[in-house]
């Protein structure tokens, strides 16, 4: 990490937090690797280690402040969190596929910022789930699997993702994942007890765990969904402009 820090231009070195951001930003550029990414590269696959960008709210939750290509991520307990992992990458030109999830709320995905014109849906792969996912990992950057598979197949698909430099996201438990995000629900707000208002925000707690030295357990609080269906950090409610005037 330090070797990359020395590349930084002098005008944004204010705090350590900024430095971390810069690393993430630099690492998401094509052709530029972090030191840890380089180490993985040396092990074989060329595309592995580069990061697919995620929305700023999720950078603290993920070990490399992004989705590392070639990795397998499982998300337990929140479909909104699965979709929000896709939003930034698809908005920047990556393609994503969702396999085996016939009841996906596409409107919710769009509200989270997912570019739906680059979202392919394979709702009912039937018995061909594994070959379909494998074929999608060949050509797309992100593949979400909505159905559990057995341990051996899971490892084969993870290996395929690693080999192709794609990110495999599982909605539900997945054996041998690199990163696991476990979401615990909290209180909904915006809804009255007597019929007024409408659902607006929900505060959730996300626990990150995983294997490998890069993954330290993190617990973060998020609003999923936050205002207008997007992801947000708690306490980040828009400051009223009239306060500034006062």
């Amino acid at each position: 990490m330090m070797s990359v820090r020395s590349l930084m231009v002098p005008d944004d070195t204010d705090s350590f937090d900024d430095a971390d951001n810069t690393v993430a930003r630099l690492a998401s550029l094509p052709g530029l690797n972090t030191a840890s990414g380089m180490a993985v590269d040396a092990a074989g696959a060329t595309a592995v280690g580069k990061l697919l960008p995620v929305v700023p709210e999720l950078t603290d939750v993920l070990p490399h402040r992004g989705l590392r290509r070639g990795s397998t991520v499982s998300v337990i307990g929140s479909r909104l969190l699965v979709l929000s992992l896709l939003s930034e990458a698809t908005a920047r030109g990556s393609w994503a596929a969702v396999v085996g999830m016939p009841d996906l709320g596409v409107v919710a995905a769009a509200e989270l910022g997912v570019e739906v014109s680059r979202l392919a849906l394979v709702p009912a792969p039937g018995a061909e789930l594994v070959p379909a996912v494998a074929a999608l990992l060949d050509g797309l950057d992100l593949v979400v699997v909505g159905r559990g598979v057995n341990g051996r197949t899971a490892r084969q698909l993870s290996a395929r993702a690693r080999h192709r430099g794609a990110v495999l996201i599982s909605a539900g438990a997945w054996p041998g994942v690199d990163v696991e995000l476990r979401c615990e629900g909290g209180r909904w707000s915006g809804l009255g007890t007597s019929g007024h208002g409408f659902l607006s925000e929900r505060e959730v707690t996300v626990h990150t765990s995983g294997r490998g030295s890069a993954v330290r357990p993190v617990t973060a609080r998020l609003l999923a969904p936050g205002a207008a269906g997007r992801l947000a950090r708690p306490g980040e409610t828009e400051s009223e402009p009239m306060l500034e005037a006062g």
């Binding site: 929140s78 479909r79 909104l80 979709l83 016939p102 009841d103 996906l104 709320g105 596409v106 409107v107 919710a108 995905a109 509200e111 409408f198 659902l199 607006s200 969904p225 207008a228 269906g229």
Partner: peptide, 12 residues
């Protein structure tokens, strides 16, 4: 139409 957020699961 209902205001955002929309349901992440829409049952078929």
């Amino acid at each position: 139409k209902l205001p955002a957020p929309s349901p992440a699961t829409v049952f078929t």
